[in-house]
Amino acid sequence: MQKCGCAREAVEKYGDMLYRICLLSLRNTADAEDVVQETFIKYVQKSPDCNDSGHEKAWLITVATNKCRDMLRYRSRHMTESEELLNSYAVEKEDSGILEALMELKDKYRIILTLHYVEGYKTEEIAELTGISPSAVKMRLSRGRKLLREKYRKEYM
C-alpha cells in the first residue's frame, strides 16, 4: 500500500478532472477552484492509504463531490452571486449548448451524469463514490439522460 500525498504530482494528474467535476456541479468557477483547493489540501494533510491510482482518484472524487454537495447545500440557504455559464468552453459549433443544457439540470443529476459520461465511471462505482445506492444512481442516470436530451433538443437543435 502506498502513501499518497505529493501535491504537485496529484494536482498535475487529477487537477483538470476534479476542476471539471466541480465546475459542472457548482456552475461557478470561483467555487469550483475553492473546492478543488480544499480537496487537495485535505489530500496532503490526510495522506490517504491507496492501493493504486484508482483508489487515489476515487478518494479525491469522493471528497470533492462531498464538498460540492456541502457548497450547494450552503448556497440553497444563502444568496450567492449569479452563476457563470460555460460558454467559453463550448467554442465549437457542434458542441454548443450541451454544457448549458447540463447546467440546467438539478444538482443531483449533474454530478451523476458527469461522473458517468465524462469520467467514465459505472453505476456501482458512482454509488460507491457518492454514497448513494446503485439503484438510485441508475434512476438518476436514466432520468438525467432523458432530461438532458429534452433540454438539449428543445433549445439547441
Binding site: 501535491a7 494536482v11 483538470d16 471539471r20 465546475l23 459542472l24 463550448a90 457542434e94 465524462v118
Partner: peptide
C-alpha cells in the same frame, strides 16, 4: 458530445500553481 465538450474544461495554470502552493 457531452464528454467532448466537458473534456475541454481545464483548470487554468495560475489556479493550479496557486493550489500547489497552498498544498505545499
Amino acid at each position: 458530445k457531452l464528454k467532448k465538450a466537458a473534456d475541454r474544461i481545464k483548470m487554468p495554470d495560475d489556479v493550479k500553481e496557486r493550489i500547489i502552493k497552498a498544498c505545499e
